[in-house]
Design a protein around this nucleic acid. Structure first.
Lengths: 366, 366
DNA sequence: GTCGTTGCTGGTAGCGCTGTCAACGTTCCT
DNA sequence: AGGAACGTTGACAGCGCTACCAGCAACGAC
């Protein structure tokens, strides 16, 4: 066997081709478009590759073909549970495909995002997943000019770069407030931390709903730029109470804050929901087992990530989805913290998931 | 809104070199080893690159240099908060370096890990970060044969493949139990979910501590293969109570379970810590603001990720750390849930962080 | 029979960068 | 002064793969 190899003994496509008795280019085609080969050569190449344990050199492939099999993902945070769910969806969907995920963290900075975008695009990714719709003008221009499919995730807006999947944070917040109105609450505070664009839109939704009811007051809103945490929820709630002692409900921009508010209520011996109702956002797992169980707005984060990656891969492979913009909606999961005002807030059995009333709304966006 | 293909104004190294008035190879050196250039050429190349907005083509670099600038990271889960902290550390440390992170999720399966490892190694990564010390024989062999630095993270053991950073879960569990003994607890239950090797070692530590005190009983241990959650904590605790009504403390394999136990106690009107003490593991942020505040074993997850990546990058660049094995230790953070047996468990102000007694131990491993 | 057409295959020519080594000029040593 | 040693630079030759286009047989349409 006069098969020649690299000094490192690595198996190249040429070796596979030689063993299979075909030209390198035919062997190459086998890996990219097997249908283009005659059955005879296809099986020959296949068994040769298996026999030699051939693994393609991705760098060479990328260089020669001028494109990579990398999907770039830009998210604002690695810590936030919300994004870890989205990521899990993305990774799950990418598994089994030939694409690999390149993740970068913008740290909630659109300038950082722009920088990373430039870096990513220079490597000609097969596709891109970016968070939100608030890019810099420059980023926007780069995205429009990019010759790869792009999915914007986490929210939906009027002017997609390409594809888009998410829901209306504005509508979701309005729905949460509407639920509190239904429960007879009037003096509803808003607690928010790290006011990224999506949290800002939740605040906008809250404000509009309150104004519609003639109940809005600026002092009902407490926000901070600090990253969110459970502890911070308690602190912000403390501020809110000091400003507005007659508070009868709190809408929290996320579930960590809501949990912090719940603990702070317990500390202060404020009855939930009798004195104060609490509504969170995202419906993390723990909301259903808190005491009392905590109302929240459920968002389909895993599904969002999974669908985004699936749509993207389909688009890369030339099968564009019929719908470029997908609204995943949300659901207000009504639980004890905002409903049973005069009932026992400490039932002896777990109330988790027990006959939760679900209000599903497709979010309408302008 | 179609994707328009822009004529890629591809800036190559050659263009930069031309503008700078040097040869391509000199320009190339500027990016890899600037010190090797004279100051004059260095500044010339630098400004030329900036002016043209040059971004190197990683695929070409990888092909020509026969190595990539990719650090492979294998972790068991994307969902688990513990790993998102570690990841954040890894990403933070990699930022600014020229290495990029390639992440894959083994889903707690060592077979999946083996498969991914094979995939990673075929692309000649610059370095590898793997979770834990329980690889398959095959994986272990591949790791030993790999010609790149490797860091094992999350725990330490007697036989590192290369570098190792973590702590002894066994010792940490023993310390937690010792703390409960100190507080006068005797009938201490163990609650664990998804018994991965590290949780298993915590259980081993618990068992050994209990046996040393002559207090171990099998029925005090409740575990399940189910993935962990707050809700599950409540459910497992319910099981435990049914088996052992005289329980006076619970050591939870992680903080989510501990929070679930706390909520379940509240539901059942079991006083914490008066009737039952609770100790968690990892010291997630919310532990400090729960009511009562929850004792936990603090682990330096972010630091672990950060240090692992830093060590790895240094090793890749030829500067091996003096210590190949790093024990980051742990601390038992004593809070209300396990200490003030006869004091008020619901103070009117937040007890978070207030004079917590910290017991720091370097974990000793054999 | 000639001309496409289709299906499959192969040759050639790079993709953009870096490893290697040779060739400088300069400085330092003996 | 002669040579070695050093620091700096450039020419050349690929890295392993694929885009592009040409070739060729088999087939049908006119």
């Amino acid at each position: 066997m006069g098969r020649k190899r690299t000094k490192s003994g690595k198996i190249r496509l040429a070796e596979v081709a030689e063993l299979a008795g075909v030209s390198p280019i035919t062997a190459s085609r086998f890996f990219r478009n097997p249908e283009a080969l005659s059955v005879a050569k296809r099986t020959r190449v296949e068994s040769a590759a298996k026999e030699l344990g051939y693994v393609p050199n991705l760098a060479a492939r990328a260089l020669a073909s001028q494109r990579t099999e990398v999907i770039g993902v830009l998210i604002p945070s690695l810590t936030n549970n919300v994004f870890s769910d989205v990521l899990r969806g993305i990774y799950d969907a990418s598994e089994g495909s030939r694409y690999s995920i390149q993740l970068s963290n913008t740290r909630y900075s659109i300038l950082q995002e722009e920088k990373l975008l430039r870096l990513f695009l220079a490597q000609k990714p097969a596709g891109l997943i970016v968070t939100g719709i608030d890019q810099t003008t420059e980023s926007r221009a780069m995205l429009e000019a990019a010759d790869c499919p792009i999915v914007q995730i986490m929210e939906i807006g009027p002017d997609p770069v390409d594809m888009m999947i998410g829901f209306s944070h504005y509508d979701a917040a309005r729905a949460a407030v509407a639920h509190l109105f239904e429960q007879g609450r009037r003096r509803i505070g808003f607690v928010g931390a790290r006011m990224d664009p999506r949290v800002q839109r939740r605040l906008d939704g809250y404000v509009s709903a309150m104004k519609d009811a003639g109940l809005f007051e600026q002092r009902l809103v407490v926000t901070t730029a600090t990253p969110t945490s459970v502890t911070l929820g308690g602190a912000l709630f403390t501020d809110l109470l000091a400003r507005e002692p007659d508070l009868d409900a709190v809408f929290c921009a996320n579930d960590d804050l809501a949990l912090g508010v719940l603990f702070e209520c317990r500390r202060r011996e404020i009855a939930v929901p009798d004195q104060i109702a609490i509504v969170g956002f995202n419906d993390l797992e723990f909301m259903a087992s808190a005491v009392p169980t905590l109302t929240s707005v459920r968002t389909n984060r895993y599904e969002m990530g999974r669908t985004a990656a699936t749509m993207l891969i389909e688009a890369i492979d030339g099968r564009r989805p019929e719908q470029a913009v997908l609204d995943l909606g949300f659901k207000v999961i009504e639980r004890q913290s905002s409903t049973s005002r005069h009932s026992d807030s400490r039932p002896s059995t777990s109330g988790a998931g027990a006959a939760n009333k679900m209000v599903a709304l497709p979010s309408s966006h302008d």
